[in-house]
Amino acid sequence: MAIKLHGSWMSTATLRVGATLYEKGLDFELVPPFGQVPAFEDGDLKLFESRAITKYIAYKYKEQGTELVGANFSEMPIIGVWMEVEAHHFAGPSTKLVWELCIKPMIGIPVDETVVEEATGKLNGVLDVYEARLAKNKYLGGDEFSLADLHHLPNIRYILMTPKASLFTSHPHVSRWWSDISSRPAWTKAAALSDAAIPKQA
């Protein structure tokens, strides 16, 4: 049975899962969302939570497409650490910036500058740690691209469209890393679909 992804290409969570499916070279059908996006169906299995879905795809289709969770068991804990860092340190402040600077202006809600400044400070501190990590490692999980990198793509993409893009461009190793991971064909494909889905300003 075909894989179904309920969501919208504008959603960061849908993009996270879509990029993973493209890395694995899997066919899927994007269907309109129900409830919280994304929801995912693979045969009888139904899942929500984008990071649980990407992990399932990475393990289930391990032998296919890009290896995303480490070819060796010894790499797994380190990839796991940086997936958790994304979820617990990066996602909080970066999601706040996406909400304040991308979504709110689009739907016409005033931006809360206090939230923006607080999130900017926190994210800058997180990126200082990334800068040190990426000065010594090509990717967050080590020498190879993995889900630890991929999970960051959607939020960074949106923040780079805002005046807070300097958070990333001011960190040279983070910038080098972003250029690398965002030029992957799977991400280019997902990002193009997202571009097409964003309403054009009148």
């Binding site: 899942l47 929500f48 990071r51 649980a52 879905i53 992990k55 399932y56 289930k60």
Partner: peptide
Amino acid sequence: ATIEQWLE
């Protein structure tokens, strides 16, 4: 996968 979902 279901365990990971509830861990998330």
